Computed example of a mutant assay.
Amino acid sequence: MTVPAPGMDHGHYLYSALPDRPRLLWPNGARLAVSVYLHLEYYEMEQGPTTIRDSRYNSRSAPDVLHHSWFEYGNRIGIFRILDALTAHGMRITVPTNAVAAERNPRLVRDLADLGAEFVAHGLTATEMQHSHMSEAEEARLIAMSASRLEAATGQRPRGWMSQDFGNSIRTPRLIAEAGFDYCADWANDEQPYWMTYDRLVSVPNHVLFDDVFTIWDRHVPMVHYPDIIASGARQLAEDGLTTGRFMSIGLRPWVMGASHRIKYLEMALAELAAIPGLWFATAGEVAAHYAAVTAYPAERTREPTPA
């Protein structure tokens, strides 16, 4: 009889209860590391018959002018509002980037690079999710192509990977590690980074509770509550961080939070964040690198084999 691994039904990482871990120390005595994920995405107006996309954005029209133009509103208008707000409060910026979005928006790439943003590989387009019907070779090709085209468009070799709309197969973490990435930002299951079971791959959490699409778009939380969601979460995490360092990610899409009637709520949230003592504003790559430098890589890594 097979005994299931504690806490999950896969072998991508080992179970780890937070109270049992060594204390995690952030730079300069910070209690909470905060990363802002500002998505740069391209939504295709016409998709092929085999494309699998997030059902939240499906349209009955073809070509899909509505969602294509909505995403493009973010890249033409909304992103500049968000960048003004982030830079005004000294936030570091991590940019999960569709390779096609980088190729089609060189002005944005230059602006983001000038601000010291870190580009993270995020597939080719917002309409091409990874999925379990792909063969291993197809998925590996998508990961490799996304990284190489993003590097060509930005001049940066991406060190991190974030799957489009959390699309994964059971092979995805292993393929990310084999492609040479340092960290993966697909998992929402922790308040600290942690080692995955694949060749020095760090998981940097992607917190859906602080993500604008999941909070505002999916759960329909009134905008008036958004600043308190972000600020109260950060205050609690900073308090918990007195014992051991914590991590918080804030997901932003220019077509959501960059809208004219929403931007003031982001500005309010950022102002409250900036007033909380003991925060380290860092890119996801900086968080992953610090974690890897101060946390021993487990000598013993055991996992159940995953299906092919």
Rank of each mutant, 00 (worst) to 15 (best):
A33L: 05
I82C: 06
Y198Q: 11
L175Y: 04
G116D: 08
E300L: 12
H225E: 15
A126L: 03
P22W: 07
L252K: 05
S163Q: 03
I79D: 06
G74T: 12
R157I: 03
L38Q: 05
K264R: 15
A147F: 06
G155D: 08
A113D: 09
P19T: 08
R21L: 15
W70T: 10
S35F: 05
L279N: 12
G180Q: 01
L252G: 00
M162A: 07
R31N: 06
D64C: 01
A185T: 08
T154H: 03
R141N: 11
A177I: 06
A288I: 08
T302M: 14
A99T: 12
S132E: 14
A30N: 11
H290Y: 07
L237P: 02
A292W: 04
N75Y: 04
P298R: 06
Q236D: 12
R303D: 02
N105C: 03
L38K: 00
V256I: 14
S146L: 05
G160V: 11
T302W: 14
I52H: 07
S232Y: 10
I229F: 01
R104Y: 11
E267G: 10
E128S: 13
A152T: 03
M1N: 12
S169L: 02
S35M: 02
V213H: 12
H261Q: 02
T197N: 15
S35H: 03
M162F: 04
R200Q: 14
D212L: 03
H225K: 15
W195F: 06
G251Y: 07
G123I: 06
S163G: 10
L24R: 07
P96F: 08
R200C: 07
R92Y: 07
H290V: 02
T283N: 05
A296T: 10
E118G: 04
E41Q: 07
W217S: 09
P222F: 14
H207G: 00
D54C: 14
G78W: 11
A152W: 04
G7K: 10
S148Y: 02
A269P: 11
L252Y: 08
G74V: 11
